[in-house]
Design a protein around this nucleic acid. Structure first.
Lengths: 248, 248
DNA sequence: AGATCTTGTTGCAGGGAATGCAACACCCAT
DNA sequence: ATGGGTGTTGCATTCCCTGCAACAAGATCT
């Protein structure tokens, strides 16, 4: 809608992939060097972009700080956090909180396992949407048409032999998840890692977030992990209650 | 430098503090509603801003994802990470990596303690610059004049009785740190938490990052933590060697 | 129900701001 | 010295952004 801003913002994903100099930026944007320079300057003044000693540009500190501050102020996160901590204390495993937003599922919060073996994930990182237990819950709650459109538009990487293979399988899984009100990922992302997840609902019953407990099978078997399901669901329900009780 | 972009970017810190509706944004920016609307639309198209069900705007998923992607692609981080992990395995304590950038020190990476008692910190979060051991190292390497200017411009919050009280004390501490080539924070940020830190240097000898080991005094005393100093310094030197050996 | 207020959205005309050009400055190699 | 590569600046032109005002859509009140 606004050309200048549009161009400026297009620089960001470009720099996210790694540092770039003025010429590279101007070429990839398809504008004159001087134009790119002025856009970069403006971004620089706001700390969004940083100029390295070698003059190349990369994303700057304030961007991280912004993302951080914003993520910390999210209502769900704030409300859910103490529950996540308690769940981690009880189970010892890694606990995640995730939300869906405009065709992305991303981790909002995480409490790390107390066992030495850890799974890799990072707050703010997009989730493996076709296999993650939390993603299934968040997508399963969408209207059917939207679900279908999204499922059709996705890639289905075969992380492991148990990964969701295609849109049909994914939609079937979503239907099941929607029915039962909880979800699992048994080795669909990484061979040895299992998750159980439960939805967090707002006052109107819509799913606003999902939380999960994850553990590598060297620590607990999938069956053992499944015994935690009632606890996870109770915790999620407690968060739902807190959340819809006093949204502000 | 570019008015439109400048205005658009000014919206971000505003939204970082919490969701806002169109009118609030337009007022705080000092522009007409229609202008604010178009800026927000553009931000929205790029996923930087998200429109909540209640129509209010807040920072969006892609912003987190961007910040995340960028932070993961930083050279120092990539090179240092395995060293951090090994240091964590050897000591069991929380290990941090931090850099300085335009009057901010921020955590780039973190490996959590294996002990149940953890300290609070988050990647991407600005560091308590007047007390953190890593911050001292990063600032100590700057030219004297710059150090002084920064020191004068800072606030000196009294987190604890041992926090750096003022600019004079801070500059003195920086001088000492610069001299000895390592730094500590003994309860300056949180009463019971101690850190030891060492600098990571580029090929030209300039400090490009700093790493630290932190532990609460209920786990190890400050004196015990200090015995780890040689190990921390060796690790930092190893990272320096890796980093300046093959920067790309 | 109807009236009124609040908040978000759209078309439009005028003017200011962004654009690309070209010339310049600078650094490093040869 | 000389040349290529890269970043920077001044400037005229034009286009895009701006603010206005009218409209649309809810929400709240009588």
């Amino acid at each position: 809608m606004s050309q200048t801003v549009d161009r400026a913002l297009s620089i960001l994903p470009l720099l996210a992939r790694g540092p770039a100099n003025l010429e590279q930026v101007s070429q990839q944007l398809g504008v004159h060097k001087s134009t790119a320079l002025r856009l970069l300057r403006t971004l620089h003044e706001h700390g969004i972009v940083y100029r390295q000693p070698d003059q190349r540009y990369r994303l700057g500190a304030r961007l991280f700080a912004l993302a951080q501050e914003a993520i910390e102020n999210l209502d769900v996160r704030e409300i859910a956090h103490p529950h996540l901590v308690r769940l981690n204390e009880k189970t010892g495993h890694t606990v995640h909180l995730a939300v869906y937003e405009e065709s992305d599922v991303l981790y909002l919060d995480k409490v790390e396992s107390r066992y030495p073996v850890r799974m890799y994930s990072r707050i703010g990182k997009p989730v493996a949407i076709t296999v993650a237990a939390v993603a299934k819950l968040l997508l399963a709650d969408l209207p059917e048409q939207e679900r279908r459109e999204i499922a059709d538009g996705l890639d289905y990487p075969a992380y492991t032999a148990r990964s969701t293979p295609d849109a049909a399988a994914f939609l079937a899984e979503l239907a099941r998840v929607r029915e039962q009100g909880w979800a699992t990922d048994l080795g669909g992302h990484e061979e040895s890692i299992n998750c159980v997840a439960a939805p967090i609902r707002g006052a109107d019953g819509r799913v606003v977030a999902a939380m999960s407990v994850s553990a590598p099978s060297v620590v607990v078997t999938a069956d053992e992990l499944l015994t935690l399901l009632p606890l996870v669901r109770r915790t999620a329900d407690a968060v739902s209650a807190d959340y819809s009780g006093k949204p502000r």
